[in-house]
């Protein structure tokens, strides 16, 4: 255990407490507001009710938006998982000119502001593709999401590959296994958890994304975050947003639980 003065330890503990309050108080207020009877959120809450939960339960647009979000995030996750893993293997196994550039290229889509990425894609779709008679529609949104999700899978898989014993693959090849067989039986099991964790992150990133989505969603299609944003224009049911937000928070426990299990498995 680290030798630190009592004062230093106390200081650190206070910082931890501040961080936790700062992170959780807003979410807590929001969750409480989903039970606010009023149309308009506020504090302190004057009267509690479950009417917005009942309203949300059967509200069709929420379901449609949720379905879109799941479809887009799944599509983006699959594409990003394949591409991210390929890059990770390339950067792990080879020293080559331009290696750092490839690394930079993978990071770029997440590092550049979402509004730039969104505007760039929508510019390509509407000023170049659609005049050429090619209407990309729904798939354009998945393409944009997949692009900035690649880095999530890449990071996780690459970090794991670096710690892997390369001799295992050589041994496998020596024993006569082909590349695919080696990959399937030797390599993949070793980075499987990192792969799943990366894919999960990619899914979450896409599921939550709003800025790129604003610019790339085809007319009439809402993802869940987009629906929440548009709801800000509908004052007569503003509180229903709190219900959806609470559900999103609760749903987020699932991937956190899974990735926690994965890390424990690793250790």
């Amino acid at each position: 255990m680290l030798r630190l003065s009592r004062a230093t330890k106390a200081f650190l503990l206070v910082v931890v407490a501040i961080v936790l309050v700062f992170m959780y108080a807003p979410l807590f207020i929001l969750i409480l507001n989903s039970f606010n009877e009023s149309q308009i959120s506020g504090w302190p809450i004057e009267s509690f009710s479950t009417k917005w939960w009942i309203f949300a339960k059967d509200y069709q647009p929420i379901r449609a938006a949720l379905l879109n979000s799941v479809l887009v995030a799944t599509g983006a996750m699959i594409i990003a998982s394949i591409l991210g893993t390929l890059v990770a293997f390339a950067l792990k196994g080879f020293e080559f000119f331009g290696r750092a550039t490839v690394n930079l290229l993978v990071v770029l889509p997440i590092a550049l502001p979402g509004v730039v990425t969104g505007v760039a894609f929508s510019n390509t779709y509407s000023n170049f593709l659609s005049p050429a008679g090619f209407n990309i529609g729904y798939f354009g949104m998945i393409v944009a999401h997949a692009t900035f999700c690649i880095v999530m899978v890449f990071n996780n898989v690459f970090a794991r590959l670096k710690r892997m014993n390369p001799h295992l693959q050589e041994a496998s090849a020596d024993l006569g296994a082909g590349l695919w067989q080696t990959f399937r039986l030797v390599t993949f099991p070793q980075f499987r958890t990192a792969f799943v964790a990366g894919a999960l992150l990619a899914f979450a990133l896409s599921f939550d994304e709003v800025v790129v989505t604003i610019f790339t969603a085809p007319p009439g299609v809402d993802t869940l975050p987009l629906w929440i944003l548009k709801e800000m224009a509908r004052p007569n049911q503003a509180s229903v947003v709190n219900v959806v937000a609470t559900v999103v928070i609760l749903l987020s426990l699932i991937p956190v639980y899974i990735s926690q299990r994965l890390t424990q498995e690793r250790q």
């Binding site: 807003p26 929001l30 929440i228 709190n242 937000a245 928070i249 987020s252 926690q260």
Partner: peptide, 21 residues
């Protein structure tokens, strides 16, 4: 877990929550 959880809680959700606070 406590630091990771809000990462998943939704970008807009957190902005709306900060507005409330």
């Amino acid at each position: 877990v406590a630091i990771t959880l809000p990462l998943w809680a939704g970008y807009l959700v957190k902005i709306i929550a900060m507005r409330l606070v």
